[in-house]
């Protein structure tokens, strides 16, 4: 049986990017131009996902392996939506909620860790500096990682 969460709407309303989800009138303009809808074997459908948010299917949407992770972030739905729901942003808001529960994919968590600890998505090696010098570029300066770590939370460290 599907569990319904009656306060999911409020939670989304107060998560950045989720605020507009209840304005969806289910026209489906987002689906026609969605590459994930076209390529998904599990039936990814942004219209249905937004409907599920309105109904309150919090557990289905936020559980590990949720279909929301099939979104490619192409922003076609954002372009098409006549109601300014911005399905991709509603999906991203749910990804933020999933991150809090740690039900987001391991690959995402490790990428985020890299940015938090190195200040970059890619790791610097000696080969990089050599390549840069070969191209006539300066070697890279140190990234102020301590600033990033300071900004990760509202609290004082």
């Amino acid at each position: 049986m599907v569990e319904i969460s009656f306060d999911f709407k409020e939670k989304l309303d107060t998560t950045i990017g989720g605020e507009m989800h209840s304005y969806c009138f289910q026209c489906g303009a987002c689906v026609g131009d969605c590459p994930s809808a076209r390529y998904s074997k599990r039936g990814f459908n942004p219209r249905r996902i937004v409907l599920q948010t309105i109904v309150g299917m919090e557990e289905v949407l936020l559980e590990e392996g949720s279909i929301i992770w099939e979104c490619t972030n192409c922003y076609n739905c954002y372009e098409r939506c006549p109601q300014d729901v911005r399905p991709v942003e509603v999906i991203t808001a749910m990804k933020n909620m999933a991150a809090k529960r740690e039900t987001n994919p391991e690959d995402v968590r490790s990428m985020v860790k890299t940015v938090e600890t190195k200040g970059m998505t890619t790791v610097l090696t000696a080969l990089v500096d050599k390549r840069r010098v070969d191209l006539g570029l300066k070697t890279l300066k140190e990234i102020p990682v301590s600033d990033i770590q300071e900004l990760l939370t509202e609290k004082e460290r």
């Binding site: 998560t15 950045i16 990017g17 972030n73 991203t92 808001a93 990804k95 933020n96 991150a99 987001n104 995402v108 968590r109 990428m111 985020v112 940015v115 200040g119 970059m120 998505t121 990234i143 102020p144 990682v145 600033d147 990033i148 900004l151 990760l152 939370t153």
Partner: peptide, 16 residues
């Protein structure tokens, strides 16, 4: 620093 990336980092915590 990293911009930070608009896919993974944004999906983790939009305010940060």
């Amino acid at each position: 620093t990293c911009c930070p990336d608009p896919i993974y980092f944004k999906s983790s915590d939009k305010l940060t």
